[in-house]
Computed example of a mutant assay.
Amino acid sequence: MSDSRLSRRAALRLGLSASAMLCAPTLLRAQDWNADADGPVPGQVYQPKVQRNTSSFRAAQWQDHFDSRKNGVILCDTTSRVVHFWNEEGTIYKLYPSSVPLTEDLTRLGYTEVVQKVVGPTWRPTPSMLERNPTLPEVVGPGPDNPLGSHALYLSWTYYRIHGTHDTRKIGRKSSSGCIGLYNSQIQELFDLAKVGTQVRLI
Score class of each variant (00 low, 15 high):
G172E: 01
T158R: 14
V100I: 14
Y159V: 06
G181P: 04
L136S: 00
C179E: 13
G141F: 04
P97Y: 08
Q186K: 14
M129E: 11
T158Q: 11
M129C: 02
T165E: 03
P97C: 07
L109A: 11
Q188R: 14
T135N: 15
L148N: 03
P137Q: 15
G141Y: 01
L136Y: 00
D145N: 15
P137W: 14
S128P: 05
W123C: 12
E131C: 07
A194K: 00
D192N: 11
K195N: 10
K117S: 03
P137K: 15
G164K: 00
R132Q: 12
P142D: 15
I180A: 09
R173L: 08
V100K: 02
L182K: 02
V118P: 00
L193H: 06
K94E: 08
R169N: 15
P144H: 03
R161P: 07
Y93D: 06
R132D: 07
N146T: 02
W123S: 14
P142Y: 09
Y159F: 10
T126C: 02
T107H: 08
Y159E: 12
S128T: 11
T135A: 15
D167R: 09
G181K: 09
G110D: 05
F191V: 04
S99A: 15
E113W: 06
G172M: 02
V118Q: 03
P121S: 11
P121D: 04
S185I: 07
F191G: 01
T103N: 12
S176Y: 09
K170C: 06
G110V: 14
C179W: 09
T158G: 10
I162V: 14
L182S: 02
P101R: 00
Y160W: 15
P147L: 01
G172C: 01
T165K: 04
E138L: 12
F191H: 10
T122E: 12
T165Y: 05
S177A: 10
L193Y: 07
G164L: 00
K94F: 03
